Simulated scan of single mutants.
Amino acid sequence: MNLDDLKTLLLVRDQGGFAAAARTLDLNPASVSRRVAEIEAGLGLRIFQRSTRRFSVTEAGEAFLTRLAPLLDEFDAALGSAETLSTDPGGTLRMTTSVSFGHEVVMPLLGGFHAAYPGIRVELILSDSNLDLVRDRIDLALRLAPAPAGALISSRILTARYRVVASPAYLQQNPAPARPEDLAHHPALRFPLPGFRDRWMFRDTAGRVTEVPVDGWLICSNALSLRRAALDGLGVALLTDWLVGQSLRDGTLIDLFPQLEVTATGFESGIWALYPTKAYLPQRVRLMIDFIRREAGRAAV
């Protein structure tokens, strides 16, 4: 039994079965199942309970894997630190994120990342659809969400704040809303997503939350296009700070409710790094996550 065997056990648990783990490892599910059985025999411990209908982790197996995971994390971190100091990281990093976040945040950072790690090739897949990381062989996904759900491993790299904005030209033609309820008299530029398209939420400094119904003639699935519509004076828009920060600084967009927190889903939204499992986290993935967290956070200050 070696480190790869132990990582295989964690991978099977994190992926929820032998078939999903086999896809990550590019192996036959039967071979992964056989190898796990051999590991269990060597340990004298049943880690997984199998049947034709159900897969689960045994109580003893969960206790073992819970203690094992941080030990392997520490080993990988120590190895990664040593590799960074002693070798030039390499390989191809396949990562995905939304079109808007990729365009506004990731692309401006790639030149600096390449200068720091010239041996790493980056394959960036911009898509507003959530790709299947295992099926599409994605090493890293960056997603905007209140908190990711599911079996993927996640780590928050940035906090996201939403703002309700409009252009000066729009406000010259329409009275600025004095309170959130006044948005009922303004055309909202909306995403075709639950919450975003029909009601926005506001929270004041006392923690009181107000839900405001919104409506409008334009619904668009792309955040860059909604920002363009807001800049063109077509209405008011609910957009993230990393998308409208420069426009707010140069005055081409106005924050209508700077004293309030705003959201359409949850007030703790952020940009999350998602990857299939900690057990097989390449060094290049760790380096990209740390680089974006550091550099994007510095740019936001």
Rank of each mutant, 00 (worst) to 15 (best):
D232L: 08
T159L: 12
L231V: 10
F55W: 02
I254E: 15
L25G: 01
P276G: 01
T210G: 02
F202C: 02
V212F: 07
V262H: 07
L109M: 15
G119R: 05
L274F: 00
Y280A: 08
R249Y: 08
W242S: 04
V262G: 11
L234K: 12
E40H: 09
L10E: 11
A115W: 01
R135D: 15
T52P: 10
S247E: 15
V105K: 05
W200V: 07
V262Y: 08
D241K: 05
S225T: 13
Q173G: 08
L152M: 13
D290F: 00
F291H: 06
N2A: 11
V301K: 05
L243S: 03
W200R: 03
A206N: 12
M95C: 07
L144H: 12
S155W: 13
E83R: 11
P118M: 14
L158Y: 07
L256I: 08
R197W: 15
D132E: 03
H185N: 12
G207A: 06
P118R: 08
A22V: 13
L238E: 08
V262C: 14
S167F: 00
G207T: 08
D139L: 06
R190K: 11
R294C: 11
L193A: 09
G44L: 07
W242D: 10
T240R: 15
R227G: 11
T84I: 07
Q15W: 04
D255P: 04
L226K: 01
A230L: 00
S154R: 09
A145F: 01
L124M: 10
T66L: 04
L158F: 14
T252G: 00
S269Q: 14
T97K: 09
E59R: 10
A141Y: 03
V106I: 15
F202Y: 09
D5F: 07
L3P: 01
R94T: 12
S31T: 15
L10K: 03
R135C: 07
L183A: 00
A149G: 15
R208L: 10
V99R: 06
A41D: 13
S31I: 11
L253Y: 01
G150C: 05
V262W: 09
A21G: 08
I120S: 00
V236L: 09
D132A: 04
S154I: 05
L274N: 05
Q283R: 04
G119M: 04
G297S: 02
V301R: 09
N174H: 15
D139Y: 10
Q172G: 14
A145T: 10
M288P: 00
A229N: 11
R227S: 04
T84W: 01
L72S: 06
R179H: 12
L109V: 09
F113G: 03
V209P: 03
S81T: 10
A184E: 12
T92E: 13
E38Q: 10
R35P: 01
E261K: 02
L85G: 14
V36W: 04
L43T: 01
A178R: 15
R179S: 10
R163Y: 10
R208T: 00
Q15A: 15
F18E: 06
D4G: 07
D128R: 10
D250A: 13
V36F: 09
D14M: 05
R94K: 06
P177H: 01
S129N: 12
